[in-house]
């Protein structure tokens, strides 16, 4: 049996969530989402198909914009960006995201950097994947202290985008706009439903015995550990080196 690194599970899950997109944008300092997008492109190209266009903010190699930092948002507003990633200091059960701070505003007890483009992109990018490795009740709260970007909008508010899935270090959730809320789709190896319930501050739907997150096959892992990590190293050298080192320690490197 092939040993799979927990981060490889995340990267491969992201590649699956992105299947079918034409253009995915990845924020600065997001090596795992970037790796997922690069993996999908490599898989498509290997199968003789055309992979997605990938914009990585702050990267020189993956920046094909020429109209300054406004162009990404203009591009999204025109419907030209199909997928994007959002993290969050807090995320609640309605898909609301808080990137500003914990406690009262404006004198937050903990201040995070700020909302960045979330208050716009969440409205106009169809497939927003919420991604946060840390899965604790500190992050996944019943109600966020500050809404940087809301998960749902009232009828009549222009909205072509929103939450599609929530991926954490423990599991994968889908967002159901009709309820609205999250449903646990699968649990990553080494974790279980009881643990996820204890670490999640909001209620979510789930089956009695949730599935395990699908693991990558050998061919996908080979691609990830070879070509994808090499390509990723151009933008995220430290992350790529760390992954290669950890894979080698686990004896998982492809010979």
């Amino acid at each position: 049996m092939v040993e799979v690194h927990p981060r490889e599970v995340l990267i491969c899950t992201i590649a699956r969530l992105l299947d079918g997109v034409r253009h995915v944008a990845v924020g600065a300092s997001s090596p795992i989402p970037a790796a997922g997008a690069i993996l999908l492109r490599a898989l498509k190209e290997k199968a003789g198909a055309i992979g997605p266009r990938i914009s990585i903010l702050g990267s020189v190699d993956h920046n094909f914009f020429t109209n300054g930092s406004a162009e990404l948002f203009d591009c999204a507003g025109q419907g030209r960006i199909d997928a994007f990633f959002l993290g969050g200091g807090q995320i609640d059960g309605f898909g609301n995201v808080n990137l500003v701070g914990a406690g009262d505003y404006p004198q937050s007890s903990v201040r995070w950097p700020g909302s960045f483009g979330s208050a716009y992109l969440y409205f106009v990018v169809p497939r927003v994947i919420l991604f946060r490795e840390e899965h604790t009740s500190r992050v996944f709260v019943e109600k966020v202290d500050f809404v940087s970007a809301p998960g749902i909008s009232e009828d009549g508010v222009f909205r072509t985008g929103g939450p599609y899935a929530l991926l954490t270090g423990k599991g994968l959730f889908r967002f159901d706009k009709s309820r609205p809320g999250f449903e646990l789709e699968s649990v990553h190896p080494g974790h279980d439903l009881a643990e996820i319930k204890a670490a999640t501050g909001f209620r979510f739907a789930h089956g009695e015995r949730p599935l395990q997150t699908k693991l990558p096959d050998r061919a996908t892992l080979d691609l990830l550990r070879g070509r994808v990590l090499d390509e990723l190293a151009g933008t995220y050298p430290e992350f790529a080196v760390q992954m290669q080192r950890e894979l080698a320690q686990r004896g998982a490197l492809v010979s």
């Binding site: 948002f73 507003g77 500003v100 404006p106 007890s109 483009g117 716009y120």
Partner: peptide
């Protein structure tokens, strides 16, 4: 972050495309 906590600066939190 310290100035935010102490309330010594006023914040006008925005989103990137609003500033553009």
């Amino acid at each position: 972050n310290a100035a935010v906590k102490e309330g010594t600066i006023k914040l006008r939190d925005a989103t990137c495309p609003a500033i553009h």
